[in-house]
Amino acid sequence: MGRSYKVSRRDFVKLVSGFFGTIMGAGIALPAIGYVLDPALKSGGAREQWIPLGPVDQYQVGVPAPFNFTRTQVNGWERTSSSYGGFVVRESETDFKVLSNICTHLGCRVAWEETENAYVCPCHDAAFTVDGEVISGPPPRPLDEYEFKIEDGNLFIFFKEG
């Protein structure tokens, strides 16, 4: 019997099993990681669009006008529709500002409260001024603004996913 082998039979078997075991393990584990992360790495496609918000004339100076729109997107095997919204604020005859209604704290939807002259967030009681500055509460920054344009007397806002 081969007592003189440098590597014992046992160690050889261990080494070979370890080697092929590692290859097989990696062969499964690496694809599996890709498989799990896949939806996070995919973009929903071209998700940018100008959304029409109607004639400029309908907006009164100083009164925030709420608007809503929905976008549908295919997520996996299903269409998901999400609604978005905000406020058109006509600051003067010529100056506009379009605010998102998503609270900059943790993403709840703010609503315009006439009596308080503020946008109020139902979640943690934040309040924002008519043009989006933080009055009180936890939000770290003013309400986000939509980029907009006016064409032939109609208002459009620029929508970007995420």
Binding site: Y35, V36, W77
Partner: peptide, 30 residues
Amino acid sequence: FLLMYYTPSPDHAYDSIQYIMNEVAFGWLI
């Protein structure tokens, strides 16, 4: 791993499998 995407409802079972086979990275392999 299959359960991560498979949906056991008549409305979605077939589509979720198509999704695994054709869209998810390495779905065909798993």
